Structures are given as C-alpha cells and as structure tokens.
Amino acid sequence: MALTLYVDTQRWRAHQQSVIQQFPGIVPVCKGNGYGFGHERLAEEVTRFGSDLLAVGTTYEAARAKDLFGGDLLVLTPFRLGEEPVPLPDRAIRSVSSVEGVRGLVGARVVVEVMSSMKRHGIHEEDLPKLHAAIEDVRLEGFAIHLPLDRGDGTTGVDEVAAWMERLRAAHLPLHTMFVSHLKADELARLQQQYPHTRFRARIGTRLWLGDHDATRYRGSVLDVTPVSKGDRFGYRQQKVPGDGFLVVVAGGTSHGVGLEAPKALHGMMPRAKGAARAGLATVNRNLSPFVWAGKQRWFAEPPHMQCSILFVPDDAPAPQVGDELVAHLRHTTTQFDRLVDH
C-alpha cells in the first residue's frame, strides 16, 4: 500500500518532445526532488532524448548526477568564495555571479550570470570592465540571465536580454552563448534572429517535466476504514468526530510532503477571500486534504501523520474499501512518492 505517482509515459514523452522542438538547444533542468520524478528518472529521460547538458541546482546534486548522466553538468547555484569544496569532474560547469567568483575559479569552466530584474544574483554593468580581465583565467562557456515570470513595467523578456547583449557587446566580451530562463519560444526565436552569431539556450524544468498536467497523477492507497458516530473520540488528540461517517486512513503523510504548501502570491479579491476563508477554517481544525473521494476533496480528520493521513468521509458518501486508491492533488516539487508506475 503506497502513495504512487502514475505516469502516462507516452503522453509525458510526447510533451517533452514538443518542448524540445520549440526550444532548440534546450538545457533540461533537474534540481530539488527532480520535479517529483527523482534525479535518476530525469537523468534517464535526458539521456534518452540526447541532450549534451543537464542543469542541476547545487554542487551536491551535481556530485550525485555525475553517476547518472554522462554529459556536461551545469550547476545553477553560483560559486561563492569559501564554499565547501565538492569533488566534481571536468564536465561540470559552475555558474558565477561576481568578478571575485570568477577569479576564484582559475582554470574552471564557468557561466557568468548577469543581474536581471529578478535582483537575485548576478554581475552588474559596472563590473564588466573588471570581468574582461578575469575571464582570461577561466574557460568561459557563456553568459546567463534568469528572468522573472511576470512583468509589471510594460517591458518584455526580449527587451531585457537584448539590453544585456548590448552591454556585453560594448564591453567587448565574448557572446558565443547566452543561457536564458523563462522566455517563450517565439521570444527566443526573435533573439536568435536579432543576434545570429550568439547561440541562445533555454534552461527549462517546470515546462518540460510538468507542462502536461494530465500526464501524471498521484494516488494514495486506502489502508483502513473505520465507521464512526458523531461525538466519537479518535486520534492522537482524542478529538470528537463532527458527524456520522468513516475515518479513512490513506497512504501519504508528512514524509511524502502531504500537508505541505508553498506560499502563493495572491492577485485579486477572490483569491484573497479564499485564502482568508481557508485560514479561518484552519483555526477550528478544519483543513482540506489533497485526497479526493466520490468527487470531492475530503477534510483531514486530524493533521497528517508521518506516512499516512486520516480523513473524515461523512455518511452521505459511500465508504471506500481497503485497497482503493484516492486521487491526491499534490505539488510535484514538494512530494516524495513511494513508487512510480509507468502505464
């Protein structure tokens, strides 16, 4: 009995191919929990479709990925002076976001990140004259820019990349390769047309692996079903059951990521109202679970346990049976499955 990730493999791979065709020279990204699939599975997929380069989040991920993928590895987290050294093969490429970082990587393969409107990390325009001398001691693989998902100033991602291309050109820096994130296919094509002597490579994770929501589905196995009456006490804290129905124990708990939710940026009154309503219900121990039974998301009876959750199903719905599987609406990047099934 398990929390299972079911993958419609043919459909999932067809979506991969559609993205690869839209973004020539794509750099697939495999970081964190491997977008819910795991690093080993994504490394297999990248090897299968023949990419020469795989982007990972950290040096620790690169150290694991080197045994899973035979091509080059791009580490996205920028190098910092004084960081813990992690042995990596020569096919590893380090991102760098400062002149000092470039100087600390003599002889290494590097990609220099420029500061975008994300304002997260990157080289500033005023540092470009110093950078010109520093890159003589490294093997420069290109420059990179990480763009925001939303823009509120009327500009486009193409505008921002083009502005940086002109700054780099004015500083007489080599422009053979530019790695970009969060551009649409037509925007990438416009840049490629505008700068034909530069190779633009899109770093893509979410769109590549999770772009077709119907290609994957989580399901949790029902482990136990107990009939209860209103007022019966149950669970660790011996709370009272709110009505007649069933306590349903289902595979999937905090160790799987069930009950975890990343903060969201809310836009508009309706999402804010829904958020306030959820917060209000939580104060009286009413929390909606990700598990669906008989067409409805069911309430947690109590906070999820480490490897299972207890749900309350009222008696106006049929009782699930041990061995049934409940669909679970879970976020891939925060979920760890027990097993993955291709079908």
Rank of each mutant, 00 (worst) to 15 (best):
L5W: 11
W12R: 10
R13A: 10
A14E: 15
Q17D: 10
S18G: 11
V19K: 04
F23H: 04
P24G: 01
G25I: 09
V27Q: 01
P28I: 01
V29F: 04
F37W: 10
G38K: 02
H39Q: 13
H39R: 06
E40T: 15
L42A: 02
A43D: 03
T47S: 15
S51D: 02
L54W: 01
V56L: 05
G57F: 12
T59M: 11
A63D: 11
R64F: 11
A65Y: 08
K66P: 03
F69D: 01
G71H: 00
L73D: 03
F79G: 03
R80N: 04
L81D: 10
G82K: 03
P85V: 05
V86A: 06
P87K: 11
L88E: 00
D90V: 09
S95F: 00
V96W: 04
S97D: 15
G101R: 02
V102W: 03
G104L: 08
A108S: 14
V110D: 00
V111Q: 06
V114T: 10
M118V: 05
K119N: 14
R120D: 09
R120Q: 12
E126W: 09
L128D: 01
A133H: 10
E136M: 06
D137I: 10
D137R: 12
E141Y: 04
H146N: 15
H146G: 09
P148T: 09
L149I: 15
G152R: 10
D153T: 11
G154R: 02
T155K: 14
T155S: 15
G157N: 05
G157V: 03
V161I: 13
R167N: 13
L173S: 03
P174K: 00
L175S: 04
L175H: 00
T177H: 08
M178Q: 04
F179V: 01
K184Y: 12
A185P: 12
D186A: 08
D186E: 14
L191M: 05
F200S: 01
R201D: 04
R201W: 10
R203T: 00
I204H: 02
L208P: 00
L208G: 07
G211C: 08
D212A: 11
D212R: 03
T216C: 11
S221P: 06
V222L: 09
V222W: 05
V225I: 10
S229R: 14
R233T: 15
R237D: 15
Q238L: 13
V241H: 02
G243I: 14
G243V: 12
G245V: 08
G245P: 14
L247P: 15
V250P: 12
V250A: 07
V250D: 05
G253T: 08
G253M: 12
T254A: 05
S255C: 09
G259Q: 07
A262Y: 04
A262R: 15
K264M: 13
K264F: 07
A265S: 11
G275P: 13
R278N: 10
A279F: 13
A279E: 14
L281M: 14
L281S: 12
N287K: 14
P290R: 01
V292A: 10
A294W: 07
A294K: 06
K296G: 07
P303W: 04
H305D: 13
I310A: 07
F312P: 03
F312D: 08
V313M: 07
P314K: 01
P314E: 01
P314V: 07
P318K: 13
P320W: 08
G323N: 05
L326D: 06
L326S: 08
H329S: 11
L330H: 05
Q336Y: 14
Q336P: 02
L340W: 02
L340R: 02
D342Q: 11
H343K: 13
